[in-house]
Simulated scan of single mutants.
Amino acid sequence: MKKITVLFSLLTIGFILSSCRLFKIDDSAVSEAVSSQNQVTDSSKESLKSSETDDSSITESSINSDESKEIVTENQLADYFPETANKEYVYIGEGNEYASYDVFTDYEANNSKQTRTNNGGTEVVKVLDLEENQVVVRIDREETYTRENWLKTKISNKNEEMEILIKSPIKVGTSWEVVGERTRSITAINVSMTTPIGTFNTIEVTTGGTGDKEITYYAPNIGLVKSVFSLNGYNVTSTLSEINETPLMQTIRFYYPESDGKTMSFVDKEVAFKTNNVTRKRIEAAYKEVPNNQVGNVLSKNTKILSLYLNKDGHVYIDFSKELTSEMNAGTAFETLIMQSLVNTIGGYYHTNDVYLTVEGKPYSTGHIQMEKGEPFMVTNKNSHELGK
């Protein structure tokens, strides 16, 4: 899996930044941008046709042309990272099974955004910041399948180097160093690039390393439209094919106690998350939707999840309002099933076996179950089965 994610990071190193503009755009912004970008001249299309036969020729000609170095775009840095809240960017790939992927913005605020990239083999979460003269990747986490808001999280390791995706001024010749002893630079301006959703006037950013090269193309008001990774004459490409207005869908397994007081049933639910949705609130709402009368309630109507997060120690911490216990009308056996259902559900979502559960900051305590401070509940699938089977 580690090899998959390393290659995946190379393929998506220049991915789009959303929600980093200093102003808002309306829902028609994407379609308007596509429409305006489609207005290319015949000569531009002819240039595009030749570029499509050999992606590397675009960069080589750009680097070697003295005239191109004088070209400066009127677009600003933020123009290449438009808002993408509740929009799914879908890329089709060639050359590798992981070259196709989709991207969703989990959170965005104050010129920062947190994206989730899924290539079918793994999910990578990144936090990107729009600074005064550059766009940087502040956090890059592989194999991250849960929604955790890291927009305000600082880099814990002082030696961890932030990666610069784009740097101003937006003109040919702007160059900078990136992680891995690689050089990245703007190598062309006004490059016409055709994708399944339209033709765009783009800037070209080239990253060179030892034996490898990556070229990324960014369009104003859209973001990344194409990337080409080359190694020893072998190319892997990813091209923007769709922009869908849709929430992120995650499958979560919810456990419920059965009326016999001995077993639990589980059901997989598709939970929709819009950009900036609070994870604990969406899970709470989904949990209160009891699938049928064969199982009992886990959370009463008035019970609230006050906090929910995955700690640096790899354990999940969840705190409930007092109604969890005050409105739980259950004997010892049924209460045990309720708590085990909760622990299995939360632990399963966060991929951990230890769940530290409290009620308004205090250890869980009733007449039937007494937990000590710092004592976790443990996930177990014993005596559980799929609902209806």
Rank of each mutant, 00 (worst) to 15 (best):
Q134G: 01
G208I: 14
N149D: 15
P196S: 12
V137S: 03
W176M: 08
S175M: 10
G208H: 08
Q134E: 13
L165C: 11
V137N: 03
W150R: 07
E131I: 10
L151K: 04
P196R: 15
A188H: 03
G208P: 00
I139D: 02
K158I: 12
T195S: 11
V172C: 08
E177L: 13
V137P: 03
D212C: 01
S168R: 03
R138A: 05
S192N: 06
D129E: 11
T207N: 02
P196D: 05
R138D: 01
Y217N: 06
R138V: 01
K213Y: 07
T187M: 01
I189E: 08
K158V: 12
N201S: 14
W176A: 11
Y218S: 09
N157R: 10
T194Q: 12
Y218A: 10
Y218P: 02
R182A: 06
N159Y: 14
D129C: 07
T216W: 01
I170V: 06
E177H: 10
T144S: 12
E214L: 10
D129G: 02
L165A: 13
E160A: 04
P169F: 05
E143H: 05
T216D: 15
E163L: 10
S185K: 15
G211I: 10
V135R: 14
E214F: 02
G180A: 06
R147P: 05
P169K: 04
I166K: 01
E131F: 01
T207A: 05
G211L: 11
I139E: 04
K158T: 09
E143V: 02
P169D: 14
T206A: 13
I203W: 09
N149Y: 07
N133F: 06
E161Y: 01
E132P: 01
D212E: 10
E204A: 12
T216M: 07
R141C: 02
I155W: 02
K154W: 00
L128G: 07
D140I: 00
I215A: 12
V172Q: 09
G180R: 11
L151N: 05
P196F: 12
I166Q: 03
E214H: 04
N159F: 15
E181R: 14
T206I: 07
N149W: 08
G209M: 00
N190E: 14
S175H: 04
F200R: 13
R141I: 15
G208R: 15
Q134S: 10
S175T: 15
V172G: 03
V205C: 09
E177T: 14
E181W: 05
T174I: 03
N133W: 03
K213C: 05
L130R: 09
D212Q: 03
K171D: 12
R147H: 09
T199Y: 12
T207G: 03
E148Y: 02
I203F: 11
R147V: 14
I170E: 04
I203H: 09
V172T: 15
T174Q: 04
S185N: 10
T183D: 01
V136P: 04
R147C: 09
W150A: 02
V137F: 00
T195W: 06
Y217H: 11
I166A: 04
R147L: 15
E160D: 06
T174P: 03
